[in-house]
Amino acid sequence: MKIGLFFGSFNPIHIGHLIIANTIYDRTDLNEVWFVVSPQNPFKKRKSLIHEHDRLRMVELAIEDNYHFRASDVEFHMPRPSYTIDTLTYLSEQHPQHQFCLFLGSDNLSQFKKWKNYEQILEHYEIYVYPRPGEKQEFDHPAVHWVNAPLLDVSATFIRESVQKGYSVKYLLPQKVEEYIRDKKLYL
């Protein structure tokens, strides 16, 4: 099977993540999309992250009605911070029957050459890039495929701040994720 890996802190997962994942799944030759919850992104500060198991649970709730989507905690069991090449290598060794590829926002693609062993990623894995506001399609490589997807600017930071201030996050999150955040009193 061909598996698209959507890495993220998902702090929290929101409607923008789901729209992007569904659009890329629908418009490519992928068989599944795995949401890889990253415990610690090497480019982000840890202090704003809620516990990884809460973030994983929210992903599970958000995707439970889509049998093409799967939540993955693979990086929970790996050294931290998480580096994409290490996770790709590990998954490829554990699941040699699958072909893995990577989802990337064009904003992250502009920083891609700063990633650990980015050349190996380009050599061994396809990358599906979706547009982000203010970013141009300037990275040209045979492994990079631009996907026509909605230009979304939904921000997890905006959602967290809204929750902290008591504002509605309806329509920004799947209902079950919104209920989970409320029930567990997350981001307060």
Rank of each mutant, 00 (worst) to 15 (best):
Q40F: 02
I50Q: 00
Y83N: 09
R46G: 06
Y83F: 15
V59T: 05
L61C: 04
H77L: 00
H53N: 12
F43Q: 07
L56M: 04
M58R: 04
K44I: 01
N41M: 07
L61S: 04
S72N: 07
N66D: 15
E60I: 12
S72W: 08
K47R: 08
Y83A: 13
H68F: 13
M58Q: 04
R57G: 09
F76C: 03
D73R: 05
D65A: 14
R70Q: 15
I50N: 00
H51G: 04
F76M: 02
F76R: 02
R55W: 00
V74K: 07
P42S: 13
P81C: 14
E52I: 06
F76S: 02
H53W: 09
F69Y: 13
V74W: 01
L61P: 11
F76I: 04
S82D: 04
H68P: 11
R46Y: 03
M78I: 12
R55I: 00
F43D: 11
F43E: 05
H77F: 11
S48P: 00
A62S: 10
L56Q: 04
H51W: 00
I50K: 00
A62C: 12
Q40G: 02
M78H: 11
H77S: 13
Q40W: 10
R46C: 01
I63Y: 06
S72P: 10
Y83R: 07
S82A: 13
F76T: 03
R80Y: 10
S82Q: 01
M78V: 08
K45C: 00
I63L: 06
P79T: 09
P81Y: 03
R46V: 09
D65M: 14
I63Q: 04
S48T: 10
F76W: 01
M58I: 08
D65G: 14
E52S: 07
S72G: 14
E75A: 15
F69H: 00
Q40R: 11
H51N: 10
N41G: 11
T84I: 15
D65R: 11
E52L: 01
R80G: 10
D54C: 09
